[in-house]
């Protein structure tokens, strides 16, 4: 194995700051709003069923407060997914893939290609209706660290997957 260990000055390193991100498909905004609504609706329905099972009436007695609180929370969540869309973006570099997200709490995750275990294209029912796909990138870093890029056209998702696969494959040959 050849060995090189040149000194690299820190200002010469490629920086995450210089990245131009690509936005995901605009349809994703609708998808995520619908998903949020369904989620909050389920949250509303669960106490309703619990109430039915226990033959109490507190759910009906407090319906105004419950609905009021619920619409407030739903409104916040919808706003979050509405604005969240604008802040989702991804970028490919020679050696890694970058994904940023979050409107209020922002985060940028970088996954080096030589750490990727496998990739997956996933399509939820709502996404299928809108013709969108989700690219999932798995590393050994555990479930919470797996990268999920939503709102991609199936074609783009496939291309990305192929590109990553190529890079990962090349890495393993070396």
């Amino acid at each position: 194995m050849e060995f090189s260990n040149q000194q690299v000055e820190e200002w010469e390193l490629p920086s995450v700051l210089d990245i131009k991100y690509r936005q995901i498909e605009k349809k994703h905004r609708t998808v995520s709003i619908i998903a949020t609504m369904i989620f909050t609706f389920i949250i509303l329905v669960i106490p309703f069923f619990i109430n039915m099972a226990s033959s109490d009436t507190w759910f009906y007695d407090q319906i105004i407060y419950i609905l009021g609180g619920w619409s407030l929370i739903t409104g916040c969540f919808v706003l979050l997914s509405f604005k969240g869309y604008e802040h989702k973006g991804y970028a490919l570099r020679e050696r890694d893939i970058i994904f940023k997200e979050g409107w209020i709490w922002r985060s940028t995750t970088v996954v080096p290609f030589n750490r990727i275990q496998h990739t997956e294209i996933d399509q939820g029912p709502i996404e299928r209706m809108f013709g969108l796909s989700k690219l999932k990138i798995f590393t050994a870093g555990g479930a919470s660290s797996d990268l999920k890029i939503p709102g991609l056209l199936p074609d783009t998702a496939n291309k990305l997957k192929d590109y990553i696969q190529l890079k990962v494959g090349r890495d393993e040959e070396e």
Partner: peptide, 14 residues
């Protein structure tokens, strides 16, 4: 041993 890296900011931190 790094698998991936995340840089995140709360509004205050931003």
């Amino acid at each position: 041993k790094l698998q991936n890296i995340e840089v995140s900011q709360s509004p205050y931190q931003r």
